[in-house]
Nucleic acid binder design. Structure first.
Lengths: 134, 134
DNA sequence: CGGGATCCGCCGCGATACTG
DNA sequence: CAGTATCGCGGCGGATCCCG
C-alpha cells in the first residue's frame, strides 16, 4: 500500500538521497520559480523571438517595469534567458531564450495549449462552485 | 513587425473580443491558480489514486493542515478535484481527480518530467549566476 | 479524523521618483 | 531606453487553538 506511494514520493517529497531532501524536489525547484505572476507570460513572448525591454513592456500591458526587470533577472538566473547589452546611445538590451529556456518552453507548451482549450470550463466550474456556496 | 506579435498577443494580453480583455487571458486564468506553492504537488499525488486528507498530509510532510485544506478547496473550486465525505465515525473524506483534473494533469506531465530531467541544470545555473554577481 | 477560526510575519507585487 | 531605489499594501502561508 505504501508501495504505490513510493513511486511518486521522490517527486513530491524530494530525494532524500543526499541532504535534507525537501529542497531537492525537482517539482519544487522548477515549478516554484515559474509559478510567479509573469514568468510564463514572458517565457511565452520570448519563445517567439528575442525582444527588447520596451517591446516586452508593450506586449504585456499591465506589467510594472519593476516586475519586468525582476522577472527577466529570475529567468536569466535560472538559465532560461540570455541578456545582451548593445552599447548604443541610448542603450538597448535584448533578451532571448537559451537552449534550456527553449526546452522548458517546449515542455510548457502542453500546459499552455490546455489552458487555452479549457479555461472556459475552469471559469464555469468556479462560477458554479461559488454559486453553490453562496 | 507588429504582425509577428499578434500571433501570441491573445495568449499574453487576453482576448479583448468581449469585455476588458486582460482577465480573459487563458494563460492567466489557469496558470495563476496552479502556480501556488502546493497545487501541483497535490495534483501529482491525486493523479495516482484518490487519497484521504490525512494520507495527503503524510505524503507532503511539510504542508500545514491549513494550506492542505485551502489547496484542496481551490482544486475543487476550479473543477479539478472531487470531495466525497463518508459519514463514518470518525468521518473520512476522500479526494479524487475529476475528468478535468485528469486532463489537466496529463497536460502538466510534460512539465513535471522536464523538471525531473533538468532541475540539476537549473540549480547549477542559479549557483553560477549568484557566483558571477557576488 | 478532518477540518474551522484567529493571529501574524513575510514578501510578491504595484506605484512613484530618480539615474546613466 | 533600461533600468535602480524606496515605500507601502494585500495576501500567501505558517503556528496555534478549538470543534463535531
Amino acid at each position: 500500500m505504501t508501495v504505490a506511494i513510493t513511486r511518486f514520493q521522490a517527486k513530491i517529497s524530494g530525494y532524500s538521497g543526499d541532504g535534507p531532501g525537501l529542497e531537492n524536489c525537482p517539482v519544487r525547484t522548477v515549478i516554484d520559480h515559474i509559478g510567479g505572476k509573469w514568468s510564463t507570460l514572458i517565457l511565452l513572448a520570448l519563445s517567439e523571438k528575442p525582444y527588447r525591454f520596451g517591446e516586452l513592456r508593450r506586449l504585456v500591458p499591465d506589467i510594472s517595469q519593476r516586475m519586468l526587470t525582476q522577472t527577466l533577472r529570475d529567468l536569466e538566473r535560472d538559465g532560461y534567458a540570455l541578456r545582451t547589452v548593445f552599447p548604443t546611445k541610448p542603450p538597448s538590451v535584448e533578451y532571448r531564450l537559451t537552449e534550456l529556456g527553449q526546452s522548458l518552453f517546449a515542455a510548457l507548451c502542453g500546459l499552455l495549449d490546455w489552458a487555452e482549450a479549457n479555461y472556459l470550463a475552469v471559469k464555469e466550474a468556479r462560477r458554479s462552485f461559488d454559486e453553490r456556496n453562496a
